[in-house]
Amino acid sequence: MDKRQAETAEKQMVEGAAEAKFVTRGVHVFYGEKEAIKGVDLTIYNNEVTALIGPSGCGKSTYLRCLNRMNDTVESARVTGSILLDGTDIYDKKVDVVQLRARVGMVFQKPNPFPKSIYENVAYGPKIHGLASKKADVDAIVETSLKKAGLWNEVSDRLDTQGTALSGGQQQRLCIARAIAVSPEVILMDEPCSALDPIATARVEELIDELRENYAIVIVTHSMQQAARVSQKTAFFHLGDIVEHGQTEQIFTNPREERTRDYITGRFG
């Protein structure tokens, strides 16, 4: 990333068109000896969808998994650099990873509802965090979360059926409801639609756009069209580095870098 870009990014932050949620500077991730990410600087804003695009193996999922420290579960992984969430370094020793993950929710590539009832799936997070003590409060959280995820109308009469019995698109929206239920501030989505059919994808994309009002959203996607449709900011990753980032419109209509142009026009990747 050149100096000019960094300056525009900083300016945007200062101008406060949107409030910065995550500020990451010089993030490196190593898997053993291999360097998967080589110094990524990126700022993620509130009430915006930031899309991470790039060919497979370019490090975008790895970067995403740094933001809620899911890389901690990989033993050989090592993260350096600074990742500030509201000004606090999340890799600081004092930060409780359990609380961090309650603030930064995640939706995975393949829908992974627990083999429990729909109700239990959504109530899981609030129960372990003690967000609600009375049954009525939990019921309310379950209902609002399912409504926000656009699933309430389809499942309100069968909350006690298994979450795994739903269709793929419904399962993914259930996972989104599950993430919303702990009232996070940021939602990370790792290719949330790659296992879904076009209709379910459209439904989830609509949902992402609605959720933008309340959360900062970071989405990894392989679909250029999806990035163009749902995101306001786009970052193009290549070989563990950010080649270019900025307003989605600008990236897709007038990229500054040759490599970005080649990638979004489908000449490589």
Binding site: N68, M70, T73, V98, Q99, L100, R101, A102, G105, M106, F108, K110, N112, P113, F114, P115, K116, Y124, G125, I128, H129, C175, R178, A179, V182
Partner: peptide
Amino acid sequence: QSLRDGSAALGATKSETIRKVVLPA
């Protein structure tokens, strides 16, 4: 593993994940 990841991403600790997700499954 995706179930453990899902639980961890919601902020559950390892033993909570084992008790409430892995063992019931």
